[in-house]
């Protein structure tokens, strides 16, 4: 089975979010970037598990600059066979999906896996757009992905329970928590990653439809007033007179 896994680069969850002057861009100084956990822990690892049981290959693809090479190497260290980097800033979901689609069209993948969303913008748009651009079926937020004969059987959450769907490939799947478990690369994988192919390809022409105008932080938290639990009258007074909510 030929599998493509789309990976993105996101700020570490411990990164402090700040913006450059006048909120024009995210301030990357001092920020550590990681592979998006949904892409790494679930999409990539499930792809590797399928390859291990059924044979085939796992390619990772990424839209980004050379600054992303460490996360691509990590994907190779975890076990992907080869990698492709489309050399452009992933400026919007639309732009990214069009770049991925242009690449994915050139190869016949049986399965394209993405994380269900990235943990920076939490947009969750790229996998759906990619499926549409490729004319493939799309299953989002899959918690389980199995093969039964030639069919993919996927489990996804619905309110109050789960839904099981059966799809004929090729298809695009966005992976949610539960599909696999994190794999930590070992030293041998890290050394092998150095020798695995990482191909850099130019982006295709895409008309930018989205322009970011401005970023701003949420308002700073106000000071907290602690009221003695015995002093309910004071609480009521403050809610009435200061907070004006009752």
């Amino acid at each position: 089975m030929k599998i493509l896994v789309c990976i993105s680069r996101v700020p570490d969850t411990e990164a402090r979010v700040a913006f450059t002057a006048e909120g024009s861009a995210f301030d990357e100084s001092g920020v550590t970037f990681i592979m998006n956990p949904y892409d790494e822990w679930y999409a990539l690892v499930r792809a590797l598990e399928l390859k291990e049981s059924l044979g085939g290959s796992v390619t990772v693809v990424h839209v980004g600059t050379a600054a992303s090479d460490p996360i691509i190497r990590k994907a190779l260290a975890i076990g992907a066979d080869d990698a492709v980097r489309i050399d452009a800033e992933a400026s919007s979901a639309d732009f990214t999906a069009r770049q991925l689609a242009a690449f994915a069209k050139s190869e016949n993948y049986d399965l394209i896996l993405c994380g269900k969303e990235t943990i920076d913008y939490n947009g969750a748009e790229v996998p759906g757009m990619l499926a549409e651009l490729l004319g493939l079926p799309f299953v989002s937020h899959a918690e389980k992905l199995e093969m039964e004969g030639q069919k993919f059987v996927l489990t996804r959450p619905v309110t109050g329970g789960t839904e099981v769907v059966e799809v004929e490939g090729p298809l695009v799947v966005s992976a949610a928590k539960g599909m696999a478990e994190q794999r930590i690369p070992n030293m041998r994988g890290i050394m092998m990653a150095k020798r695995k192919p990482l191909k850099v390809v130019p982006p295709v022409e895409v008309e930018e439809k989205v322009q970011f105008v401005h970023f701003e932080l949420p308002p700073a938290k106000k000071e907290v007033k602690l009221i003695d639990p015995e002093n309910m009258d004071e609480l009521v007074r403050l809610l009435h007179e200061e907070a004006k909510v009752i």
Partner: peptide, 30 residues
């Protein structure tokens, strides 16, 4: 735990070194 590297000594290391560090740190945390 958060790593501290006041003199940016990590920049003297290779990509493999940094990846090895991250992997073992993740393993230790887990």
């Amino acid at each position: 735990f958060q790593f501290h590297d006041y003199y940016l000594v990590e920049e003297l290391l290779s990509e493999e070194h940094r990846m090895a560090r991250a992997a073992v740190r993740d393993w230790v945390k887990q």
